[in-house]
Nucleic acid binder design. Structure first.
Length: 448
RNA sequence: GGUCCCAUCGUCCAGGGGCCUAGGACACAGCCCUUUCAAGGCUGCGACGCGGGUUCGAAUCCCGCUGGGACCGCCA
């Protein structure tokens, strides 16, 4: 039988990390088994659901590379895929439950009667056997057995009811969702039972917690996938990072792409312990993916951040800019960081803003030192073969002759060209910047 | 309060009776490389929550405790 899984967000906010994690594992399982991944919108909360959020969630999923096979935009054989368009189905089956005595009406609402001592144990694909009875479904204060609202006063179904009806009619084979739903499962099982339907397999996923071990929320800073995009994280990295939460590819493999993950994924390897979101690890994974990018892709990623910083990106050709980024090597953990670290290739302005004569490590540009620096830079600028190796050879010869330290002069050059105390090899930087630009920058600081 | 779930380095994972003096990764520290910072290489720091069993042997199985978490909405 074909595997059918679904991700069923309610459009009451952007796609957050926890939702992305759930969607990702569903996607992985669908791709691994060659099955179908269904997107269903649970918009039964009329107050909070909006069309905008629905679109935001969908584009968040697309950004992560989680494509679905059936959904409100694509349609499919078991639609419609928006709960607000499936009301007849909910009404019909609620009516049936009421007619058979499983439910009763309370005004417009239809409420499922919970009987004591009903066996509701089930075998969770990741948690194993979960033993419970209907007796556990008690009210917080009164402690009485609590009936389950099926249809609300406004005619909309509740989550626990709609999810059963939809999963059944959409022929979902595996319900893969967060562990916070384990305790909802018995209620749903009760409804399956009353309706005489075969329940799907359940596979619950460990929660993602913040540093304080509490369920990840806004308090923990960035939680929507878009915030990560805006901070300069790549979708491949966020995907990779999320996939490693509650699952491992095995064999110490932790950097991978979607295809590899889809090939290796196994529900049986999903862990049960809640996972703490570690931004350091995300940074590392992002850096790894950043390093693996080809120059063109990398440039496409960095450009927006340069532009955002107000740099005249259009004045340069792509080959030059790509070369600059190649020179940057493994520096920077996010696109934003890499863009900030490499602004001096695109403009002299940020260099000027950072420059302080005394800021040059370790000695600063003192008037006493200036003549020597001028001599050094003049010699460099006079180098006929404008290439990193030739410049370095020339510089080494000069410092050796003068009996001074390369570091003092290289650092001043670095600072004048980049406005930073750290950069790739400064002769490489100078080479790429070109003789004219190097001269311009040095002249500006009266260093040549 | 009730029900359920979970428990290996600070964090993410591996290990599921002997291969474990517990492995990898992030982070952290140090060294090498070096004109600086990354990258890379090497080294170090660092965990089976506690107590009982079962067993020749337990991180691994069982029980209890403790500690976390989730749910108990006409929210999803």
């Amino acid at each position: 039988m074909e595997t059918r899984v679904r991700f069923a967000p309610s459009p009451t906010g952007a796609l957050h990390i926890g939702g992305g994690h759930t969607a990702l594992f569903n996607w992985l399982w669908a791709r691994r088994t060659g099955g179908k991944f269904v997107l269903r919108i649970e918009d039964t909360d009329r107050e909070r659901s909006t069309q905008e959020y629905e679109e935001t969630i969908m584009s968040g999923m697309r950004w992560l590379g989680l494509d679905w096979d059936e959904g409100p935009d694509l349609g499919g054989p078991y639609g419609p895929y928006r709960q607000s368009s499936r009301l007849d189905l909910y009404w019909e089956n609620a009516e049936k439950l009421a007619a058979e005595g499983h439910a009763y009406k309370d005004g417009n609402a239809v409420i499922f009667k919970v009987l004591p001592n009903v066996e509701l144990s089930f075998d969770d694909v990741v948690y194993g056997r979960i033993e419970t009875k209907s007796d556990g479904l008690r009210d917080r204060e009164s402690g009485d057995l609590k009936d389950i609202v099926l249809l609300k006063g406004d005619g909309m179904p509740t989550y626990n009811y709609a999810v059963v009806v939809d999963d059944h009619f959409m022929k979902i084979t595996h319900v893969i969702r967060g562990e916070d739903h384990i305790s909802n499962t018995p209620k749903q099982l009760l409804i399956y039972k009353a309706l005489g339907w075969e329940p799907p397999l359940f596979a619950h996923l460990p929660m993602i917690l913040g540093k304080d071990k509490k369920k990840l929320s806004k308090r923990h800073g960035a939680t929507s996938v878009y915030e990560f995009r805006d901070m300069g994280y790549m979708p491949d990295s966020v995907f990779n990072f999320l996939a490693n939460l509650g699952w491992s590819a095995g064999e110490d493999k932790e950097i991978f792409d979607r295809e590899e993950a889809a090939e290796l994924f196994e529900l049986s390897r999903v862990t049960r312990k809640p996972a703490v979101f570690d931004p350091d690890k995300l940074n590392f994974i992002n850096q790894e993916h950043l390093k693996r990018l080809d120059p063109t892709t990398r440039l496409g990623l960095i450009k927006p951040f340069w532009k955002e910083a107000g740099l005249p990106v259009e004045e340069y050709d792509d080959a030059y800019l790509a070369e600059a980024l190649t020179l940057m090597g493994g520096r920077g953990q996010t696109a934003k960081e890499l863009a900030a670290f490499s602004d001096y290739y695109v403009s002299f302005e940020p260099v000027k803003e950072r420059w302080k004569p005394e800021g040059v490590s370790p000695v600063g540009v003192t008037e006493e030192l200036r003549p020597k620096l001028k001599d050094f830079f003049s010699v460099l600028l006079a180098e006929p073969h404008w290439a990193a190796e030739a410049l370095e050879t020339r510089a080494r010869a000069w410092v050796e002759e003068k009996g001074v330290k390369m570091k003092d002069y290289a650092m001043t050059l670095r600072y004048a060209l980049t406005g930073m105390k750290v950069s790739p090899g400064i002769f490489e930087v100078a080479t790429l910047l070109g003789r004219d630009e190097v001269k311009r920058r040095l002249e500006f600081y009266d260093l040549v």
